[in-house]
Amino acid sequence: MPDVTKAQTTDAATVDAVAPPAADTAGKQSPPKTEKPRSLWGDAWYDLRHRPMFWISSVLLVLLLVIAAFPGMFTSVDPRDGDLVHHYLGKPELGHLFQPDWFGYDQQGRSIYARVIHGTRASILVGVCVTAAVTLIGGLLGMLAGYFGGWIDSVISRIVDIFFGLPFLLGTMVVLNAFTERKVYVVILALAFLGWTSIARVTRSSVITAKQADYVTAARALGAGTTRILFRHVMPNAVAPTIVVATIALGGYISAEATLSFLGLGLSDPTISWGIDISEGSKVIRDNPHTLLFPAGMLSLTVFAFIMLGDAVRDALDPKLR
């Protein structure tokens, strides 16, 4: 629900429109029973809980995480087991729920359902790990640059600029080309190597805003040390935009992995990945669209779920709403 203050355009009115939420009628009064301490994080969580988008994406993502962790729960078929004699490009049997032939077979005679299930792990792993790495590196460098400023900021910002100048996909392709066997961790490293810059920029600017706040000055006036100021005052107030960017970017990294794998530069056999399957399927797409459709659909669904979650989180954390 939009807050009044958000919508007010003329500044004088912002304060004027609504009294602060908890203004009691007297300075000294026991708090009304309905009123509980409400942290800003608590408010954001309250906000999230009231968004259907959050719930849809969360259910989807939990399901995907379970699939990635325990693919055996969903299918007992070995995704690498091909039977060219019986199943060469077998058509999907949509009535056969959770059966090996549910989504049909590919041109190696392997169960597409089993491959989609087992491919989840690689995609989720790449997405989550790249995001974690990128948030750590970018967040740390951005925080240092933003908080200390001066030459530290100049150096870090120039490095960010240089990395930003490299085209993301082209750059990762060049890096990946240097490896012959491309396992999951190689792809993660390559994506993280070029992906951290946007997080660094976002974190830097939110840290700069936060460090200028009066409460930081107040802490300095009390004699608080740099560590305390950074971790107690600056970080909690600067972390929201970073979280939002990271959640939305997660979907992007998953699709980047699929793109690279499709181009033959990402994961390679024997790793199972939607990107590889999409690439394989595209060769026979005219007569057997199902070979492409199911891995591609799964990929879109996953990316969509992450982006939707990111949107919901952003709306909940948007400081302008408060």
Binding site: P20, P21, A22, E35, P37, R38
Partner: peptide, 12 residues
């Protein structure tokens, strides 16, 4: 008793 409240729950 307000010790556990957050600043935005107070007036100016």
């Amino acid at each position: 008793e307000y010790i556990n409240r957050y600043p935005h729950q107070f007036s100016g």
